[in-house]
Amino acid sequence: MGNPRFWLSLLALTAAGELLAAPPATGNRLSFVSCPIVRDTRSVPCWLSEYEGNTYYLTIQSDVSAEVQPPMLGHKVLVEGVVSAAPAVCGGIVLEKVRLSVMPEQDASCNTMLPADEHYTIDFNPRPPGPSGGRLAFDPSPASATAPAPAPPKGPQTFQLYFDFDKSVSFRHPAPLVSILEMAEKLHATRMTVTGVRGAHKLSNGNLLQESAGVGQRRAEEVAGLLLGAGLKIPATTTWIDGTPDADGVDDWQSRRVTVELLP
């Protein structure tokens, strides 16, 4: 997860006297499905989730440019992350490398909104809960735009598109799809292969959480259809992996994907 400045500058206290389960060891990987919780603050809200008696801090509200985007009340969230030693934020144990995916089915029990509490303040917010200062919260700095152009591409080029649990193409995909179109032009691609994968997660409780059958095919066909529909005029081979996938609890979010290979 994102910005180190952000971590250091968040001031947070755990309310005295709160009964906590045994804290997890730093460095532990966690993977669980649970309700998200919103905690208001004087500034933007924090997002938390409880698992086995501990409260974890997931992210804060900022804007569309955030690397870790908040989940949704009314739905459970699939959380992956590594327990860090950083000071608690908004009363939650901080997870690093957080990956969140909203579970698609509705769950009315996920409705906890906690009021602002003076114990929890955020003294750095990349984007206040209203208009921005003019740029997106996590825009690349103008300096990075002046970096030297990469060498012209040679040989096959591979792209990974990642998906929310059980979902196909969404608001996450215009940018990577445009990158593929641009590369196809630079490379003078002559064909492409599109492989969709049905993902799976090994949860911390030992259970296997598998996406719905057919989602790999749906993703592959949708991605290929969009690229062709946007004017990419090259033959496409569409395949998918829909078996019982391996999952080891390490970055399992990467299994929910489509791989696009462009061939010169």
């Binding site: 809200p45 908040p70 949704m72 739905h75 809960p129």
Partner: peptide, 24 residues
């Protein structure tokens, strides 16, 4: 500038901001 909780609004609470969002 007046904030309130925007909730359950398709294509705004679903585009990476969260549901609800405290915004205007």
């Amino acid at each position: 500038y007046r904030t309130f909780w925007i909730s359950d609004a398709m294509h705004i609470n679903t585009v990476g901001l969260g549901n609800p969002i405290k915004r205007t």
